[in-house]
Write a protein that binds this DNA or RNA. Sequence first.
DNA 1: AAGTGCTGCAACCGCTCTCTG
DNA 2: ACAGAGAGCGGTTGCAGCACT
Length: 416
Amino acid sequence: MGRHSCCYKQKLRKGLWSPEEDEKLLNYITKFGHGCWSSVPKQAGLQRCGKSCRLRWINYLRPDLKRGTFSQDEENLIVELHAVLGNRWSQIAAQLPGRTDNEIKNLWNSCLKKKLKQKGIDPVTHKPLSEVNNGGDDRDSVKSAKSSDKTSHHTCSKPSPALSDQRIPSPPPQAYTHQMKQEDDAAMGACISGNSTMMANSIHAVTRDYYDDDSFNPLQAMANYAPPDADIRIPSCSATVATSTSPWLALIGKSFGMNSELNLNPNNSTPMPSIITQSASSFLTSPVGFRPSMNTIQTESLAMNRFWDLGNSSSSSSNSNRSFIDNGAFSWGLTDCNLLDKEASSSVALMEAQNQIGGMKWAMDYSQSSSTLMEAVNLHNQTPQSLYNETNPDGSHFITTGTCSSLLWPQQNQLC
DNA sequence: AAGTGCTGCAACCGCTCTCTG
DNA sequence: ACAGAGAGCGGTTGCAGCACT
């Protein structure tokens, strides 16, 4: 416990900021920028620590802040994002222009949690409260009940860890066998072709990689493995994707862990819960991806030998074509929903699915053809790499990489 | 009018990560 | 490789203002 080290050195003001202090800070940063925060208070003539100045600027003085109450759309988006990202307030805030993480965090703790509970949804797991209570582990609810018997919200104890706090451990080293690849290929193919029986297997195939259970959440994993400055984009645009035509959506819905009873039969038109549909559809119908940091790749991703695809399904009824580019870190999901559409392909001059692996950059040029063999270029040594147009059991196609696979499966030549 | 409890917001605290020397 | 400083994040607390008795 104690004050930040910089505050020990001299007697610094704490507490609320006066209008004069605000003006000094605003004037200084407007003229000179903040640069090194620790030097800001001195330069600006403030008896504050740099940390306090930074916070005041970010949460209150920044000119691009949108003040005022949150709209219903914003609240909905926060709930959706929280379901995916957990208490990653800064990442949630990144999706809401003009809003700060602190603001969103306060809104969540003071308002949205209650609203969800009133709707019978557990704010931690985003599952129905009845389900959570049955599990007997609704710690947050228990605590809330206890604290409500007392005095104020301040008596709330530390909430149970959200999904985001449950860091996904590095997967155990695992040899990648021919059989496993075949299973994965079949599973992915099934995922694409909409074969319901095989799709069930595909879920298993995807999740089995790391945890031997269905709790694995690829979106959560993506967020967890992403570096703090990662460019994770979950655009708010929300095209309608019918679950009946989008097995991949069903897969992601399952992976969200929000509805374990999700019917995976693509011919079944049972609507998904709206929160899943919206989250998943917005996720899937827009370019999504992030650039893993080198550290991430070196320390975590390269230790894996299997990865998942984060592409998006076609929003049309066609689920036959799909591109996933396995590159050893994550399969980049930069495939636009129309990318493989022939008419649209010409407009996509260069859809870059670029990543860095050990200093190599990969770029996929989709401008040549949308349905035949494509070329990937290793930018590092300019070596063309082949992409293969593969055929699903039902005759539909999907695209996968050739030589790139040696990165995905580094032990390809030493298969068990 | 005074006391009490509740609420929402702003700010602080401690921790972790990253950068730099 | 290591230590220290800075930046950023999420959890927590302090407090002003409001509602209610």
